[in-house]
Design a binder for these strands. Structure first.
Lengths: 368, 368
DNA sequence: CTGAAAGCGCTAACAA
DNA sequence: TTGTTAGCGCTTTCAG
């Protein structure tokens, strides 16, 4: 048993030819009689042949494909998860001879043009990109695509460009979900507020719009009392929230559509609003945990950063190795984090101090 | 150029040993002097060695790991998604020379012992299993594990067995999440009810318990008015729900913890309870869509069947090819389906008829 | 037009 | 304790 032949060799035997000939048939190379090629393809079809990519990669020695990654290298929040997703997937794809190359940027939108250019010049065939400055990147992306590179945006889009695909949770939908939830959490006729980052940011505006739209739909007689800008600043967010609570003492809910929710939690807690105001936040990181437990955060809208990274990497790899079309849009459904399921998210895992281990002790993580 | 030596061979030459020795050092295998191991690791470190994964995959996949799949072949609901997850992943893993073999059972727990035995006898090295009849399967699983097979349960567990791992959404947690949601949806002091399949089923009982526990915690003064058994029967579920609504006209919420929710929806709709009773269901399939839109279903707890399948397949494959440990438990966080994000779930996708295409033009799907 | 054979880097079984 | 060697499945070159 288990002595069965495989792949190309099997086909060769079935067709009574050598593996060289099979190879020629399979690759449409010249120097083969049309009839034998037909016969061979026939057989391949029939046994459902599919090539062993590892073997191929090994044989051609050069990587069968190189993929570049251009994403923010921030170590906290969201982007670390996004990277994990890409890297975990990269590790598996390396077994197929696909190489990944990274050209990280410091923070979203900071120097991403240079980083992108660098990748293009290094000759990669595909790029995973968080488009921090879409306007500036668009021409570069178009140029790259023209040259035959596949560009897949992840998390942050460059919608006007001709990128091959985008993997994200739509901001508008993100807001909508928060709105629906809020609408169902609070009593009809309630007043709620939104704490955004900066409304000038496309992303935050869309979330705010989505929220308002859906909230009003699901909360009869409800009202958006105010939309304040926290400007991504700790202190400012805290102040503005406090002010908000003073101005609208009967407020029933707050939606924070940026990652910067801790100041809001603090304000809510210190001023005795816990339990009185439903707080819906965005994204997830360890520091939020205590606020879930105290009941200050009612729910958070989770964007699956790890999965986004994973999917983006896969899309490009599949396209490059198997010619699978890249779907123009992959829109994930956001998750809902509540105190019950909080501990199941990757972000809540204790960072286990992992002693340096030989690079080769292959390990691969699984997302939860 | 390019005539340079690489990898393990390079190290071997630098250390004046054979590649065999290098391999031993790198893998912490026995039978090597501590001093030479040190020296070799030293060098590896220094030249920044990283293994050629393609080569490794090729070398190790020689025994062509074979993995068996034993899951219900039901074409609707949940299990079709579970299969998709496994099969999509299988397709990718086949590129690494891993073979999958299936031994489907008709419905959960029906003839799974035979199916399982068959797989074991066919000589697979790992099995993905939905343990429909855990009691009966346990000895078989133990026997298999004893022989060195890796058994990973998915979705339905055999907790008493020595299976290598389980991938699932915990039923208890499932109920808890529903309970927390319900507790936050309805006003304090509300009465709600549970429609279970059969309380004799472990799974349904745990869900019911979780729900009660959390609901009472999050809804001050709340009460579980009744727990009825639908017994997985259309008509019976309908009748019992109607009766329930008659007996408790002020009911504020219902939690259906089985897939069989349509009769409940019907009852609710026909008797004019839409909007008055918050309905939380379990799982997702197309026929539920209209009820979301009409506002009859407020939310559904989603168990990510596709992902469960995917992960289970990966765990075994990683273990077999890369010796990665199988985590004893992978507990996914259930998703929350609401009308806003409904359309983003796989279950809602139109089934596209795909014409047959060359087997080797590999295609692979991506989950959303 | 077709066959034979040499690797690609790594693992594992067997020798020494 | 270490070295040698036979593959893994595929590409590619060189002979027929």
């Amino acid at each position: 048993m288990s002595k069965e032949k495989h792949g190309i060799l099997l086909i060769a035997e079935m067709a009574n030819v050598s593996i060289g000939t099979v190879d020629r048939a399979l690759h449409g190379r010249g120097g083969i009689k049309e009839s034998t090629r037909k016969r061979i393809l026939q057989i391949a079809q029939q046994i459902g042949y599919s090539p062993n990519l590892a073997a191929r990669a090994l044989s051609v020695a050069r990587a069968s494909a190189r993929i570049g990654v251009c994403m923010p290298k921030e170590i906290r929040f969201f982007y670390d998860q996004l990277w994990s997703g890409v890297l975990d997937e990269a590790r598996r794809l390396e077994q197929l001879g696909i190489q990944f190359e990274s050209s990280p940027v410091r923070t979203l939108g900071e120097g991403d043009e240079e980083a992108f250019k660098e990748l293009v010049e290094s000759g990669v065939q595909g790029i995973v990109l968080t488009a921090g400055s879409p306007r500036e990147l668009t021409p570069l992306i178009n140029e790259a695509e023209e040259k035959g590179l596949r560009v897949v945006c992840v998390s942050t889009d460059a919608p006007e460009s001709r990128r091959s695909g985008i993997v994200c949770v739509e901001p508008h939908l993100n807001g909508c979900l928060a709105g629906e939830l809020m609408g169902k959490f609070v009593a009809p006729g309630s007043e709620v507020a939104v704490v955004a980052g900066m409304l000038s940011t496309e992303d935050h505006r869309k979330k705010t719009d989505g929220f308002s739209e859906r909230f009003l739909q699901y909360c009869p007689g409800g009202k958006i009392a105010s939309v304040v800008e926290g400007r991504e600043d700790e202190e400012e967010s805290y102040q503005r929230t406090s002010e908000l609570l003073r101005r609208f003492p009967t407020l029933k809910g707050i939606y924070v559509n940026t990652v910067n929710c801790l100041p809001v939690c603090r304000a809510l807690g210190e001023q005795g609003f816990e339990g009185k105001v439903r707080l819906i936040t965005t994204d997830l990181f360890v520091e939020m945990a205590p606020y879930f437990e105290k009941g200050i955060i009612t729910a958070s809208i989770y964007q699956h950063p790890y999965r986004q990274g994973q999917i983006a990497a896969r899309l490009i790899a599949d396209n490059l190795t198997n010619k699978v079309d890249i779907p123009p849009k992959v829109h994930l459904s956001p998750g809902v984090v509540m105190s019950t399921n909080l501990h199941l998210f990757r972000e809540m895992r204790k960072v286990e101090a992992k002693a340096g281990e030989p690079a080769f002790a292959g390990r691969s993580a699984v997302q939860a």
